[in-house]
């Protein structure tokens, strides 16, 4: 699993994950997420377009970020293209609290008023 992060448009944290987002490989992802939350960030884009598998641990972390954002009146966008990943997010009810989009452009639009 590979995780990279960058700041976009001043205060949006984009975190890109490649490979499996599961309990086996969650540590680097969790560290980056925690660091950004501690730094006061609340606007997140998770690029999961190259994720091949996601389990309840990965989904749980996304829900924590979403709860944090929601408390600050912010949003979380998740870029997903793999149909099974999208289905997994839907059945785990995550689609009710995050914005699932297919491109970075769509994700950025969510943060422009």
């Amino acid at each position: 699993m590979e995780v990279t992060s960058e700041i976009m448009n001043g205060d949006i944290v984009k975190i890109k994950v490649k490979g499996e987002l599961s309990i086996f490989y969650i540590d680097p992802f969790e560290s980056i997420v925690q660091k950004n939350i501690i730094d006061g960030k609340s606007r997140f884009i998770f690029d999961l377009s190259e994720v091949t598998y996601i389990d309840s641990m990965g989904i749980g972390l996304l829900s924590i970020v979403s709860n944090n954002a929601s408390q600050k009146g912010e949003k979380v966008a998740v870029i997903v293209t793999h149909p099974k990943i999208k289905y997994t997010l839907n059945v785990s009810k995550l689609h009710n609290i995050i914005h699932i989009v297919e491109t970075e452009e769509e994700a950025l639009k969510l943060f422009t008023k």
Partner: peptide, 11 residues
Amino acid sequence: DRSFRGRGLLM
């Protein structure tokens, strides 16, 4: 919607 745990069983 906002549960952290429990989703695994649902899956």
